[in-house]
């Protein structure tokens, strides 16, 4: 058997433990810094064990926020992020499910055109059309609204292709039988296809939740009022306080809180998520 010797196993574990240190190190240091007395942070480098100031700092940022940086209380930014992430994930899944259903189970003029229009969205990420997109959003009065934060991100070629791929593997006989039994299309979608797609939907939800939570440029464009800030973009306002040292303990507490929810989701749903990610890209 290859790779079974003790020496080799030891080397593998050492490499992996170094990997774990590399991956978790930056997060651990941030967490430790968030628990230190503010005066201690600036006097020496961060120790490896947490300090005793954590409860105070986290209570402060969650309730009061970061007044100097113009950031609202963190509970509000966390709530905004949660809403935005769930809305984007659910919206993308529903919209893509419907489009894939239309493309696979119906024949109609313009079907290929619709398919290509959806494909094109892959080639037009927000980053390459920042200014005109902002103009469109402003024109439609969507700046500083939850609509503006979520709806424009709900189109998804990847999710549509994933569902299309899945529907194509569903035996035609199932659909034919359903129709002969008098099932209407929407009943077929709801009672037969949807239950069959459960695993794909769960996997996509994790991927899209992380995607939505981690949006940065979009909320930056669409919000100017602090009460609409999401936590991932709000942290920038704390970093960019002109002419002063950043208050590192609050920033690191914010960073910790900003990465915790998506990290927990990914860890808890690892198996579903990994299979979904590897499948959806293939």
């Amino acid at each position: 058997m290859v790779g079974g010797t003790t020496t080799e196993q030891v080397i593998r574990h050492i490499a992996l433990l170094l990997g774990v240190a590399l991956v978790l190190g930056p997060i651990w240091i941030a967490f430790v810094a968030s628990t230190l007395d503010p005066a201690d942070i600036l006097s020496r480098s961060v120790p490896l064990v947490p300090g005793g100031h954590g409860v105070q700092t986290y209570t402060d940022v969650l309730v009061k926020g970061h007044a100097r940086g113009g950031a609202p209380p963190l509970w509000l930014m966390l709530a905004n992020s949660l809403f935005v992430a769930v809305a984007i994930a659910v919206g993308k899944i529903v919209i893509s499910l419907l489009s894939a259903f239309a493309i696979v189970y119906f024949r109609f003029p313009g079907r290929m055109l619709a398919f290509w229009l959806i494909f094109i969205t892959l080639m037009l990420p927000v980053e390459v059309r920042i200014l005109p997109t902002f103009e469109v959003i402003a024109h439609l009065g969507l700046v500083n609204t939850y609509w503006g934060l979520t709806v424009p991100l709900m189109a998804s070629a990847t999710a549509t292709f994933l569902f299309r791929q899945f529907f194509l593997t569903v035996p035609r006989e199932i659909a034919d039988a359903a129709r002969l039994d008098g099932a209407r299309p929407m009943a077929f979608l709801w009672h037969i296809l949807l239950p069959m797609s459960r695993t794909s939907i769960a996997a996509l939800f994790v991927i899209l939740f992380v995607y939505g939570w981690n949006q940065y440029l979009w909320p930056l464009l669409v919000t100017t009022e602090p009460r609409y800030y999401t936590i991932v973009m709000g942290i920038q306002r704390m970093m960019a306080v002109p002419d002063s040292t950043p208050t590192w303990h609050t920033i690191m507490a914010t960073a910790t809180l900003a990465l915790l929810p998506p990290a927990v989701v990914v860890i808890l749903m690892r198996r579903t998520f990994v299979r979904g990610l590897v499948d959806s890209e293939k």
Binding site: I120, L124, V136, V151, M154
Partner: peptide, 28 residues
């Protein structure tokens, strides 16, 4: 086609295409 409906597929595609046209194609 599995289902013969003529109007339904357009309704199903409408949300995706509306977002694509308004927030992707128009700005581009």
């Amino acid at each position: 086609p599995v289902f013969p409906n003529r109007l339904l597929p357009y309704l199903l595609l409408a949300p995706q295409l509306a977002i694509t046209v308004i927030f992707f194609l128009w700005p581009a």
